[in-house]
């Protein structure tokens, strides 16, 4: 590519949303791509940093869990002290709850895009309601995981009892921490939505993260079910 000769910028010129004078933000670029008047028409913006950020973060999380998985496999093979642990029953219920929360979040997202399409700033109640349902399901999941720990504890299986119980606690706790982070994201999203200041990309980013937590749990559940 002979880019030494003069040529126009290679990026397709973007249509920037019209800027209002005097909003204080001055420059061009991403700074102005937030809905400045509460209208969701401007919501279909192109500032994708939050989405990219979530994908990059998910790559790191994947790597961490890959490391823990390989640790589990190596540890299981390294000595004969691996003991079978029967998974607490409540985990099946938790799995259902988490999967259901993904669906309710999708409902919220559908309703939000329809809202954005119609361009009305008032009828935020419907997606918000689904967001609240998702939030409560998420909380229920974390509570359910806690119940699972209590069940193991009542069987006399603590963190250091056997290597398999160690891995059970570590994997579920690390996953639950990430779910709590996702809950924080959902709270942020719903507070934005209440103020009609939610960008579609923020909601997309939060829901990608949430669905990933769902898939990650299914994977972990399978791993624990096969290996413990």
């Amino acid at each position: 590519m002979a880019t030494t000769v003069h040529e126009p910028p290679r990026v397709r010129p973007r249509k920037l949303p019209s800027r209002k004078q005097g909003t204080g933000s001055g420059g061009g670029g991403w700074r102005d791509r937030t809905p400045s008047d509460g209208s969701f028409l401007a919501v279909g913006d192109r500032s994708t940093a939050s989405k990219t950020g979530v994908w990059v973060g998910l790559a790191a999380i994947t790597m961490s869990f890959a490391a823990l998985t390989s640790a589990l496999v190596v540890r299981q093979g390294s000595a004969a002290d691996w003991q079978h642990v029967t998974l607490p029953r409540v985990l099946y219920l938790n799995t259902l709850v988490l999967v259901a929360s993904s669906f309710t979040l999708e409902f919220a997202r559908r309703r939000f895009s329809r809202l954005a399409f119609l361009g009305s700033g008032e009828a935020t109640a419907s997606p918000l309601r689904w967001l609240y349902v998702t939030l409560s399901l998420g909380l229920l999941f974390v509570g359910g995981q806690y119940a699972a720990w209590l069940q193991l504890k009542s069987q006399g299986l603590y963190l250091a009892t056997t290597p398999s119980s160690s891995f059970f606690y570590v994997l579920t706790a690390v996953h639950a921490l990430h779910v709590l982070g996702g809950l924080g994201g959902l709270i942020y999203v719903s507070s934005k939505l209440r103020r009609s200041a939610l960008r579609k990309n923020t909601l997309d980013a939060a829901s990608h993260y949430w669905h990933f937590m769902d898939i990650l749990w299914l994977y972990l559940f399978l791993l624990l079910w096969v290996k413990l």
């Binding site: 933000s25 991403w30 809905p35 400045s36 509460g38 103020r195």
Partner: peptide, 13 residues
């Protein structure tokens, strides 16, 4: 107003 505060929350002033 609410929205300009929101836009500043996203990127700093």
């Amino acid at each position: 107003d609410e929205t300009s505060r929101a836009s500043q929350a996203a990127h700093h002033a």
